[in-house]
Amino acid sequence: MAFIDVCSVSKTFTTDRAARHVLDDVTLSVDQGEFVSIVGFMGCGKSTLLSIVAGLLPPDEGEVRFGGELVRGVRPKTAMVFQNYSLLPWLTALENVQLAVASASPKWPRERQADQARRYLGKVGLGNASHRRPIQLSGGMQQRVAIARALATEPDVLFLDDPFGALDALTRANLQQELAQLCSAEERPVTTIMITNSVDEALLLSDRIVPMTHGPRATLGRPAAVAIPKPRTRALLMHDEDAMRSRAHVVESLTASVRRPRRAHLEPQPVDDIGLSGVPSRSEA
């Protein structure tokens, strides 16, 4: 059995005027220690799906299980990085990280909590900026603090909600690389689900990439395994044939999901792992 099991999850947001059927029958399994990216267009429901898996939102139908246990609310040992950093502006970088550590390990003495926070700020290269407030930090630095806050709690599950989406291209590339190193440097396996709209970002970090079809009634397309040893570099991905094939497959199914008539979304889609055996033919689109 997989570590994280998402079973036929559906979600509809109802306002006074209309109902928006965001997710339709989404199923996904993630193994322990696996890094899975969900790639899709903006506004297709990726963040909603992640919120449901993380326990921030209840699903209307279906269920989410961690190690066989049904999820109600946010489970312990789970960390999340948001697209807009979500640091508390009245706390310093150190206090922001320490707040998370103190909540995750309330029994530790205060000094140990502070040490842990300092250590992780050092890991993301912000050892000198620990007493600055978020407003005094650049977007990239703020997101580093957010990553430190997530990892400092030593989670076994990490949710990344488009963590680099608000950053400029150069900062984005640097941080992706660093996150890749941080993830592989952790002693324990960290099971990670990342939401992104960048196929290259997904290729750099993931073991498996799952395309999400265009909403409303979004669902997951056929996953593509990325069988390239980690840590990877951007330069390697530019020339690696496996990477290019994965890329082609993900891009293909994303484009297909837009072009396919709406009815096709309602039919169940195979979610089995097809690996890299062949790029789907054009006729499918």
Partner: peptide
């Protein structure tokens, strides 16, 4: 809403 999400994800107590 982000701040409430932070409180939920960090599992902060009501008092904190």
């Amino acid at each position: 809403h982000d701040y409430w999400n932070v409180a939920t994800v960090l599992r902060l107590s009501r008092f904190t």
